[in-house]
Design a binder for these strands. Sequence first.
RNA 1: GGCGCUAUCGUCUAGAGGCCUAGGACACAGCCCUCUCAAGGCUGGAACACGGGUUCGAAUCCCGUUAGCGCUACCA
Length: 486
Amino acid sequence: MSADHPPRLRFAPSPTGFLHVGGARTALLNWLYARHTGGTFLLRIEDTDRARSTEESTRAIFDGLRWLGLDWDEQVVFQGANGERHKRDAFRLLERGLAYRDFTTAEELARQREAAGDGFRIDRARVDLPQEESDRRAAAGEPFAIRFRVPDGDTAWHDAVHDWIRFPNKDIEDFIILRSDGTPVYNLAVVSDDIEMRVTFVMRGDDHISNTPKQILLYQGLGAQLPRFAHVPMIHGIDGKKLSKRHGATAVGDYAQLGILPAAMVNFLSLLGWSPGDDTEVMSLYELIRRFSLDGLQRKAAIFDPKKLEWMNGQHLSLDPLDHVEPHITRAIVDAGLATAESLHARREWYEQLLTQLRVRARTTLELAQQARVYFEPTVTYDEEAIAKFWKDVPTTRSMLQATRDRLATLDTWTADAMEQGLRALAESLGVSGGKIFQPLRVALVGVTASPGIFDVLLLLGRDTSLARLDAAVRWLDDASGAAAS
RNA sequence: GGCGCUAUCGUCUAGAGGCCUAGGACACAGCCCUCUCAAGGCUGGAACACGGGUUCGAAUCCCGUUAGCGCUACCA
């Protein structure tokens, strides 16, 4: 707790699924604080629930964190490997008289709980046996769980986001710390590991607030120094309920698949429950580290709004340094089957032009890849709406496209200036506005009504392809008028 | 039921007693720019949960109510 030492923080997920956005946000906040203060960020996998934990999930957590760019210090700790220490700590508490054996079987306990209904509390007077009897039954080999004997008084702590939180100990039941099979219960395992890992700052979801007094009691019983606590708000779905599958994508991996950039995800997540204090919204990881402060932490649960995430992604997609976003876009383009990474690299200059044109127009890399399709595939498919809108009058369109083609073909140089000059002159000679030429041309080149500026498209496509597409459009229009005539 | 946490536009938030006629962003609508689409610019509608205090003065402090969420396991 002393301010003169950099803090040690940890993220401690249980590997029972993929890295959830809620977990990712908790990890991010811990990471940001560690990096901001020059502290240490540790990772602990809480795999004590053998039945639900999988290696695949552990890998998914590593992958998710790495994708977000959240690196951890020191060796990853696997909680399941620390069973012996957890057990030792439980017995230490027992020997010090701070805990006691409970010989009630789990089945009996369940029966009592059911019979008593809602407000069931164990009766310490009946369960906490006289020392001799407890020792005798234990010596006889009778199985027992170990319960922590909650002392009188209050347990309070200064929370970094909530200020003081106080619990009367009478509201805390003597809780089990070691099961009768010798395995630790969550609160004991967490405290035992956090002490061992020398964690000085525990930042976690506020669903853990009611665990905290129990854990503080355990720290005290074990004679360890308390860490600082910060309980951050949860993330909810659009209906205000806990984020779940019903809300669509909830794993960070899902968002990678949907074309979201890690920089955008991190930026968006950081602003859910935290604010830099002013109106700044679009920030790089570096800026987030620099500006992060506990003061900006919110107390209220935040609702995950995918719309704003998309907007944020669009911002990063178009504003971040190109070499930051390029690998992610390239993956989307390769995944879409448009090109190989090698072929893109071979045409590096052209590819950068393409990205420069497209990235300001797309909100996701998926969307960008979709828009890029027409620059990779040999033929153009004409969108029905585009035809209806700009190729309505077939003979007129045909002659205009033919004239456009001829004019472009006579250009000395294939530059935007030359094209513009030539095409504007053509428009003037035909007595129409530039748009009357550009729009049908756009349909001929890309098949749809939306694209980068028409000269940029011509540049990207190149002279040969552009002229070939114009020829193909003229042929298509010939077929159309032929079909109409017969 | 008990205990705890929370409460500013639909959403994310600024606000730490007078700077608030409550600011920004997303979304929505309109306009401008313009060869289209984006981006950008401008404009508009939109909030201090309710009721009591304290104070010359409250979104900000206190109490209560209501609502939401969490915990109440030999789950994590």
